[in-house]
């Protein structure tokens, strides 16, 4: 057995490794979501690199050094390896660029009561069920997910939401919350 294949056998062996604490903490790329060692296969590798540079500068430096070495040695893999046919190209799935915006409105329920409707939370990737539960606890009232991206809170809490939402989710600025006033449901 060559050295290379003994190494591989060792790496592919089953069972927990000594000195490793599980669960392993992974570094995933904030742009393509894959382990950072796979970014180079992502069609928008440049954007992955930008993310790395900003968020994991140490890993970014290491990568840069490796790349420089590879091009200096002329060991660019593309040249060395046989090309395969077929379409092996990854395509970036077009994300529909939904504007990030939250709308709140009030709707009458019966003569005296009203409910508050919140839409748009999922444009911030917020789990609606968790959010509904949070509103319920916060305002001590009923709150439920009523649609694709809609939460209905029982009671009129519209004005409070302008403080509560940015407090709970730091990524949401008060300015992106729009007041639609009173709407019929």
């Amino acid at each position: 057995m060559t050295n290379e294949s003994t190494n591989a056998a060792e790496r592919l062996k089953l069972g927990p490794r000594e000195g490793v604490t599980y669960p392993v903490v992974m570094k995933y790329c904030g742009h393509c979501s894959m382990p950072i060692e796979y970014c180079e296969y992502y069609p928008e590798y440049e954007k992955c690199k930008e993310w790395l540079e900003r968020n994991l500068p140490d890993d970014f430096e290491r990568l840069k050094i490796e790349e420089e070495q590879a091009s200096a040695d002329g060991t660019d893999d593309d040249k060395k390896r046989q090309k395969r046919g077929g379409k092996g190209l990854l395509r970036v799935k077009k994300k529909e660029d939904v504007p990030k915006r939250i709308c709140v409105s009030r709707a009458a329920r019966g003569k005296k009561k009203s409910v508050t409707v919140v839409t748009g939370l999922s444009t911030f990737d917020i789990d609606l069920k968790v959010a509904a539960k949070f509103f319920g606890t916060k305002f001590a009232c009923g709150s439920s997910v009523t649609g694709d991206d809609e939460i209905v809170i029982q009671g009129d809490v519209k004005d409070e939401l302008f403080d509560v939402i940015p407090d709970k989710w730091a990524e949401i600025d008060e300015d992106v919350i729009e007041d639609l006033g009173d709407l019929k449901r």
Partner: peptide, 25 residues
């Protein structure tokens, strides 16, 4: 699996195969 990477039988593909596997082949 990334958190506990040791319990499934592992097979290693060569570099050239990576992009194909990543496209679901």
């Amino acid at each position: 699996l990334h958190k506990f990477p040791y319990f499934v039988t592992m097979q290693q593909v060569d570099k050239g195969a990576i992009r194909f596997v990543l496209s679901g082949a």
